[in-house]
Write a protein that binds this DNA or RNA. Structure first.
Lengths: 220, 220
DNA sequence: GCATTACGCTACGTCTCGTAGCGAAAGCTC
DNA sequence: GAGCTTTCGCTACGAGACGTAGCGTAATGC
């Protein structure tokens, strides 16, 4: 994550996937410390100010860097916030609790915990809203946030099929659609519960949700 | 917040539920035409510019009113967009198609159709994001958008229980929680599918989703 | 008529934006 | 070390949006 070296040439905006090019360019390298400080400052500003009142100038001051440094690394507010929020999802993992139900409950609870953070709440939804009009931004979100979640669904699904808890799907086409459906149901429900209903997705709720989801998937 | 007229009398910001006070105040009444023009212009601007680049000055120009008129009626961008988007959900209704599955599919499809509109996509999520830091705004969204959807869930549920398609729940407490759960699952899944996955919530998807949901709810 | 309120218009200070230019700092290669 | 390259902090700038104030005028009720 995070660049500091860059994509190809001098290093266009953002990080995306830095190739860690062996031909380390000449010149003064970008400060990795500054990157960390900027992203941390962005999350801090999200908590204090929220999305709409967050300004890049303020973030620069909090991070102790010049405003121009921000503009050299990120194209704008959207990209910066995506990267700042994406780091929150780094620790997301799939625990092996022995049963599909327990595994799902664990993951959903992790997701809910992250989403309960004010910096995730105000930041993530705002960039998703912006992404409706910006394909590059949506792709950035997909790569750094969504895919990481989706991988957990795939792993959990494979594990459950190995256990015999879910029927194996022969048709890869329909299997892919099923994964997409599950993913939208899980992530969507947690997001809606947390942001729109503004109620905590606590253990009790997660248990109820998991039960409905699994019963619906199993009985086919 | 702000106040140029009084607190109660004249009818504070927004329309929310204007009491249509019988004691119609003296003085020149507010133009209802202007209200409609402003909200329509707001939706138009959402389509053309998106949330972040939408300015109140531009909306005023599109609507053919003075900028000051906007500020006299709405506290800011958030409130204005909520009202503009809320009108899109006016036509939401629960069709009686004979079975619970068909009813749900109908409602979900209606919801998905509205959410596919660019003015709904970019506007709704943005205000939801802002509402994480503004209780009054969240309440405004709840009253003008969410509750209208939730009522459909309640109606559909009652109808299904009358048909015997769902077990009646004796405990009102747990019944309420179940409705909340269903609501978060339905609305959340559609929103996530449309905005994050950026795939259309078409008939095929809605059928798959409804089947999983109903199987999960019925087998208890 | 008179009081009251809404409207359109203009003008204003303030803030943020995003960029440009500069000298200094920090790496690498030779 | 010398020399090259890139980044950094800093300052300054025009452009644009914000939200408000003030004015004269229009539309209602008494």
């Amino acid at each position: 994550m995070i660049s500091l070296t860059a994509a190809q040439e001098p290093s266009v905006y953002g990080q995306g996937m830095q190739s860690r090019s062996p031909a380390s360019r000449t010149g003064r390298p970008r400060s990795a410390t500054a990157d960390a400080a900027i992203l941390a400052a962005t999350r801090e500003a999200l908590v204090d100010l929220g999305w709409s009142k967050l300004t890049l100038g303020d973030v620069a001051t909090r991070a102790g860097v010049a405003k121009t440094t921000l503009y050299r690394r990120w194209a704008g507010k959207n990209e910066l916030v995506v990267d700042a929020v994406a780091e929150l999802f780094d620790e997301l993992e799939l625990p092996d609790r022995g049963s599909l139900a327990a595994d799902i409950e664990g993951v959903v609870l992790q997701f809910a915990t992250i989403l309960a953070l004010p910096e995730a709440k105000s930041g993530l939804m705002a960039v998703v809203a912006e992404a409706t009009r910006d394909d590059a931004l949506r792709e950035r979100i997909r790569a750094s946030v969504v895919d990481r979640q989706k991988r957990l669904v795939l792993e959990g699904r494979a594990r459950a099929q190995a256990r015999g808890e879910l029927p194996p799907e022969p048709d890869p086409e329909s299997a892919s659609r099923t994964v997409d459906l599950i993913f939208d149901m899980v992530a969507g429900a947690v997001v809606h519960r947390t942001l729109v209903s503004a109620e905590p997705a606590d253990e009790e709720w997660v248990r109820s949700f998991t039960r409905v989801l699994l019963l619906g998937l199993a009985s086919r």
